[in-house]
Simulated scan of single mutants.
Amino acid sequence: MMDMQTQPVRSQSRPVVEHGFVTESMTDTCAIVANLEHCTNTAVALQSHYAQGFLSSRHKHGRGQISYCQSGMMLVMTDEGTIIVPPGHFIWIPPNMYHQAQAQDGMCMLSIYVENGLWPDLPGNSEVFHASDLFECLMQRMIEIEEKGAFSSSTFDAIVTLIRDEIGLASRLDMSMPMPRDRRLARICNAILREPTVLRGKDELARIGNVSHRTMTRLFQTELKMTYSEWCQQALILNALARLAAGDPVTTVAMDLGYVSPSAFSAMFRRRVGCSPKEFAKQY
């Protein structure tokens, strides 16, 4: 996993709001948010291109956010934890939720920011969904309308309505990596994330956190609502996604993660991600 202190590569351009759309490439997050807060449109569309290692500032805005990874992979850090958004998937970020985004590699992201209260039935926490072909076409169409200068409020509203319908039909994926507030458990979790494929005994991890084995087990349950094993499997999935996206063979990834066979790894991967490792890797 990349160093979270990696700084984004920025251009000198500024985001432009026109007809409810924002086009952006490596621009300052604060400037984008400022434009969103002053825009009176019900929804705002944003196309973003990020270089590997891009890390936004921690920020929030009064609009709900849907961000679709058209290519590349994104990590989103919130107070709830870390969430991975693979290509072909999108994330819902509720209004006024502090968040920070990092590009794991070169990434193209299509986003829509909706007025607070427009979609009140969407969850109050961040969630990842699998995008349908129609969803991708609708998001892309919003950008194309702006590029052609053929903006129509009725067309825009119709597309926004269709996107909301597609969200309601989309499959949700558990791609979250909850992080603890307790500093002792945070030291343990960070050690696992830095080297998720290194097998450590519970006693060694407990020493890293300067806690007893029993206290560590209790902290995972009380702080993260997960067992130690469940949290470690999530860390392995994050590692697997990054390596598969980088082109590592499925067999190599499976063996490095401790699976006795590629088929066992593939079965777990499909359950958690919604596609096979090979299908996921083909998107890169």
Rank of each mutant, 00 (worst) to 15 (best):
I159W: 01
A186V: 07
S229T: 12
R183T: 11
D3I: 02
Q102L: 08
L205N: 09
M2L: 13
Q140G: 15
P262L: 05
F280L: 04
L236G: 04
P95E: 06
M107K: 07
E37A: 07
G149I: 01
G53A: 04
C30Y: 13
E195Y: 08
Y259G: 06
D203P: 03
T251C: 12
C30S: 12
I145H: 02
E223S: 00
N96K: 03
H213S: 08
A281W: 03
E204I: 09
R183F: 04
V160E: 05
Q100M: 13
R200L: 06
T78K: 02
H19D: 12
P15T: 05
T155N: 13
V253L: 03
L257E: 05
Y113I: 00
A43K: 00
R164D: 07
H19T: 10
S56C: 03
D203Y: 11
D3R: 13
R164S: 03
E195D: 13
S212R: 04
L46F: 03
G72P: 04
F21K: 11
T82I: 14
S56I: 00
M107T: 14
P8Q: 02
S212H: 02
V260P: 04
L224Q: 05
K60L: 11
F151V: 05
G149S: 08
R187E: 04
Q70W: 12
V253H: 01
V211N: 00
T82A: 13
A242L: 11
A34M: 09
E80I: 08
G117H: 05
I167T: 03
A281K: 03
M142N: 09
G168M: 06
G88K: 07
N41I: 08
D3P: 01
S57W: 06
